[in-house]
Design a protein around this nucleic acid. Structure first.
Lengths: 343, 343
DNA sequence: CAGGTCGTCTGAATCGTTTCACAACGGAGG
DNA sequence: CCTCCGTTGTGAAACGATTCAGACGACCTG
């Protein structure tokens, strides 16, 4: 059906080797011949067959990216960072969505192995899949994204989530909150556990105990889960009810915000909310969300750079980067006096 | 490096043909031999080489999906629909983001052609790229998503955006609005133009003229663009200032909402907003957005089904589907009396 | 017992590209 | 005129899986 390099060769009256040279090393072929070959290519509508190239080369010109939740804008921003770097290196990205489910993750890792991707970028589910180990044993570089490496034999670009949790908690504690909810997930993601730990430390430092912290662990880290948690908070007796919440991600924070508003709870006057990730929608919520900012796109591009370096071969020093998040204070956690500038 | 089918054959003491049979037609090989081959596969950690399969097969086991803006949750929802269908057919999806730029789109179409994808799903930029025609001439099925087909020789799953625009406009007109802004894009996307046309019709039917409609055409359909348009609206003299806006998508609507709130304009009491697409974030905005709902995920899955049907070969009747959107009324367009239930 | 059938396995051809050793040619230098 | 060299171009051997015609027994049937 499709024209092959051989058809082009015949049409141009040269050998297949020459056509290949025109394609890959145009300088070694004379201008006249090159012209003829190029004409033939245009005439036949020839398009290189990547499969054949890859077969010969032993590897493909793609990398895999496996994320936890494609519906979370955090990950689309990461993906964009990855894409930019990969594209300028002439690589395509195969984007896979594990939905935080180990089976889906494993299935995708198998697909990527069969595709002979040059490397895999992954924000893994709670447990590191054995398929990841297998991949690495086969010599496929794997870089963890938004997750610390388990050892020094692997690259990772992570965020200091203990610090992130601490920043969020200290911010609320400074504003006088003494009953704070942490709305995290039950999946056991270390990122979330670290945030929890950071919050606990800050709370303990400020109050001398854990009593000020109420933990909610919904199944998933979604907007709906945030809504439900908010409903439960509103239903608590006033004496024990938290006055603020730190959410494990902005999706949940938006859910909390929405439910609070729906129930007539004023944000931030009656209830303060701090999110995590600082996705764009956090700033565009009608009550803009205070959030712990991670460099979303940079996370992706940096991880991709490390992956490409490792894939390029040569000496490669594994790097475990941990970037520090910052707190972006917006209206959702400002008590009224702050807005007015009076003490 | 990696074990090939030949290594497996040697290790198991059989021919390569037999190994291939174990992989593809396990029933034609005796249980004993199958066992031996399976053991060898496990022992060597053999993983099929997709490139070789594809080369032989003449096509890959992937489809391409090209979207206008991966940061827009509308498209991630579409992508999820595509993914579900593709995965259960054993196909992988290569997700490409054109950013509404024809050059990027063309570049990605070239990549997809080289990958010998089984088909391409695309929400194209304003002009249909010649690369699309080329693809189709090469026999690669192309299905348009959220865009009408230019002719009957092609599948498409579109939305009746004239109706969508009309629904949005009638809703506002019924509530008494007589100066309405349409915040669309300058890129010339037919979807947006149709919405515009539907709005114009409704306005003309209700008021007998075009005077009630003010059109804004920002460069892009983003949150920021929405914010800027809102700022311009607020800056207009009260006599000419619209009392409501219909936005070409929810991203812009969220931007408008945010800026209005920031400027102290009450939504919906002082200004009503209607978005388009009904992304999840529309409902979770603190002033929940009225929006024109499109079946986002279904759009993707239906398009993928059509593509697979066409790719499967056999007789395939091209289908141009046009689904009807519905208006989801939420708070952002409810005037106060509506909320209270009084006329 | 010849001939046929069935189940199982083999081996070679094939897909389209890249790569590399080598051939052909022309010109420069001796 | 011969040799040497650089420039171009050739052609065949990979890469790894699939497929298909056919080999080979074993078994059945008339």
């Amino acid at each position: 059906m499709a024209a092959s390099i051989r058809d082009v060769a015949e049409h141009a009256g040269v050998s297949v080797g020459t056509v290949s040279n025109v394609l890959n090393r145009p300088d070694v072929v004379s201008a006249a011949t090159r012209e003829r070959v190029l004409d033939a290519i245009a005439a036949l509508g020839f398009v290189r067959n990547e499969s054949a190239r890859q077969l010969r080369a032993g590897h493909s010109r793609t990398i895999g990216l496996v994320v936890l939740d494609i519906a979370n804008p955090f990950f689309t921003d990461v993906a964009r960072g990855v894409e930019d770097v990969a594209n300028s290196a002439g690589l395509a990205v195969i984007l896979c969505n594990s939905d935080d489910r180990p089976e889906k993750e494993s299935a995708y890792l198998d697909v990527l192995a069969e595709q002979r991707v040059q490397g895999v970028l992954i924000t893994p589910t709670a447990e590191l899949s054995p398929h990841l180990q297998t991949l690495r044993r086969r010599g496929v570089p794997v870089v963890l994204v938004d997750r610390r490496a388990p050892g020094p034999d692997q690259c990772a670009v992570a965020v200091d989530d203990v610090l992130g949790g601490r920043l969020a908690a200290e911010h609320l504690l400074e504003r006088g909150h003494r009953r704070i909810a942490f709305i995290g997930g039950a999946s056991g993601l270390p990122q979330v556990q670290e945030r929890h730990a950071g919050i606990e430390t800050a709370v303990r430092d400020a109050t001398g105990g854990d009593d000020a912290l109420v933990v909610f662990s919904p199944e998933q880290l979604t907007v709906d889960a945030g809504r439900e948690a908010a409903a439960r908070i509103v239903g608590m007796p006033a004496a024990r009810r938290p006055t603020a919440a730190i959410c494990a991600n902005d999706l949940m924070a938006l859910g909390v915000l929405q439910e609070m508003v729906r129930q007539g709870v004023r944000v931030p006057d009656d209830f303060a909310i701090v999110g995590y990730d600082d996705i764009d929608f956090a700033a565009s919520a009608a009550v803009p969300l205070t959030s712990v900012r991670k460099p979303r796109q940079a996370l992706g591009s940096r991880a991709a750079e490390l992956l490409l370096d490792e894939a390029r071969g040569g000496e490669h020093a594994h790097v475990q980067e941990v970037v520090e998040p910052t707190l972006v204070v917006r209206e959702s956690s400002m008590v009224f006096r702050d807005r007015e500038g009076t003490p």
